[in-house]
Amino acid sequence: MAPRTDRSPTALRPLALSQSLLARADGSTKFSFGNVSVMASITGPTEVRIREELVDKATLEINVRPLRGLAGPSHKAAETLLTSLLAPLILLHLYPRSLLQLTLQTLSSSSTAFSTAFSTSPSSLTPSPSTVTLQSLPPSSAESAARINASMLALVDAGVACKGMLVAVAVAFVEGELRLDPTQREEEMATSRHVFAFSFGVDVGGTEGECVGVDSVGQFEVDELFEAQSLAQTATQAILAFIRKSIETRYGATGAPPPAAVKPAPAMKEEKMELPEEESEGDESMDDA
């Protein structure tokens, strides 16, 4: 496969983040790596079904929904992965007997089903499937990383208390070369692909970040995994800096959270200033880190 021409192998695609897009959800986020974009929404803490009620903490319900077709086993696996990554980070014990409902919707994901031509003729050289189905596309690692980032940022937008920030990125090995944030085409050609999730915050990774999750597919050496992990660590730090910048611009904050005394209390409610306050709490944990 041809080397990358649009960016260096260790560069990310352009990142995009927008928050509070949905009117009916308590928190929502759209996060994109280039043309792979995922929307996440949070409702909660809200009423929980008695069957699922937990007396000492909130119930975390996660729904992952694909862009095309119905959710299958790979989406159930993604839900399990997200639960295991997010549950330790959210302060669930602060919301006992309630429900935190996280819904993830893939909004765009490049499909390559028809980017290569093929024929059903027996003499043809290319593999000849008799039918072309949508399910033949493998679950994308970049999409998985975008899902993790979108869920975390939706939690921040909803003001759900968390120990720290979770940031993820995908890495792939294509013909022995390390490729950060692979495109769909690169993922298909890859010998192995990995999603790394790092947590940032006091006691959960500091500013350096701590690797809290790895999801790998394919064949690879131990050395390769560590090589990929160190690349992913620097990349997640860059993504976190982008997220910080984006949230700061949104609330007009610069650097450290503003001192609380400066804000005049009564006038704020009309201007919907409640969110920035919740936000600065989220920021603090990142700052102290």
């Binding site: 028809f114 031509a117 093929f118 024929s119 059903t120 003729s121 043809s124």
Partner: peptide, 16 residues
């Protein structure tokens, strides 16, 4: 995508 049919053989052409 455009499709060419010759007899029973079907060729699906890529978008490019």
């Amino acid at each position: 995508p455009d499709v060419t049919v010759i007899g029973e053989d079907v060729t699906i052409h890529s978008m490019a």
